[in-house]
């Protein structure tokens, strides 16, 4: 049976610590662009933790929300790519084929979540920082769009391993870097086709919502909303 990878992000657990952001950089060879380019909006964070203030001091709140590629079933980025660089793969992931990308950046405009990042220049790793690069992930050259892949290299490796051992993948054994790093376990990853997987159960949670659900992109990430504290006997 085919896999359909999905994610659940528990906003009630997310503390905004951004461990996921660095983990993603480390796993996926995402370059740092430096102060000059960062000030011109070229910083790349496949996963970001959005922060929104509500109210004003002293009655002020601050919400965190990790946003990464939602791997939409009905992805707006895929239709608009003239070269099929963005397309849906057999596991339901929005794959990005770097070699096909010619850099129209249309996908990034069409993406309502703004989770696509563009290589405005060739990435640089002053020696020996390049020794840290993950050999399982290709380096993207100038003019190419990139985005969260749900750590497709880990998925491929785990599937290959499972096939070789003639067994099914175990729920929870395979994690993208962000979920693996998350200190509060706010990020849960798994197979939505398996109704008993943790992610499939969380996707059915009454706290579950989808980001910009009304736009109809059918994202595969479920956000579990913050629960207000109540007196335990209020039930």
């Amino acid at each position: 049976m085919a896999y359909r990878w999905g994610m659940a992000v528990d906003i009630d657990k997310c503390t905004g610590c951004e461990a996921c952001v660095t983990a993603c950089h480390a796993e996926n060879n995402i370059p740092t662009v430096g102060a000059g380019q960062a000030s011109r909006g070229r910083a790349m964070h496949w996963i970001r933790v959005e922060r929104y203030y509500e109210g004003s001091f002293p009655d002020v709140r601050l919400k965190f929300r990790p946003v990464l590629c939602q791997q939409c079933d009905n992805a707006p980025c895929e239709a608009v790519c003239p070269t099929y660089a963005a397309h849906q793969n057999e596991d339901g992931l929005n794959a990005q084929v770097y070699n096909r990308c010619i850099g129209t950046r249309y996908c990034a405009n069409a993406c309502t979540y703004n989770v696509r990042f563009f290589n405005f220049f060739n990435p640089e790793w002053p020696k020996p920082l390049h020794l840290q690069l993950n050999p399982d992930v290709s380096i993207r050259e100038v003019g190419v769009m990139e985005k969260c892949t749900f750590c497709v290299q880990r998925i491929k490796a785990a599937k290959t391993e499972a096939t070789a051992a003639q067994r099914e993948l175990v729920d929870g054994a395979l994690q993208p870097a962000c979920a693996q790093a998350c200190p509060t376990t706010a990020i849960i990853f798994g197979d939505l086709n398996d109704p008993e997987s943790r992610v499939a159960r969380l996707a059915r949670s009454p706290r579950g919502t989808k980001l910009l659900e009304d736009l109809g992109a059918e994202p595969k990430i479920t956000y579990l909303q913050k629960q207000p504290w109540h007196e335990p006997d209020a039930y």
Partner: peptide, 12 residues
Amino acid sequence: PWLQELPDPTTS
């Protein structure tokens, strides 16, 4: 550099 380019949680 990763930490320099890490958006600060409360300000980004």
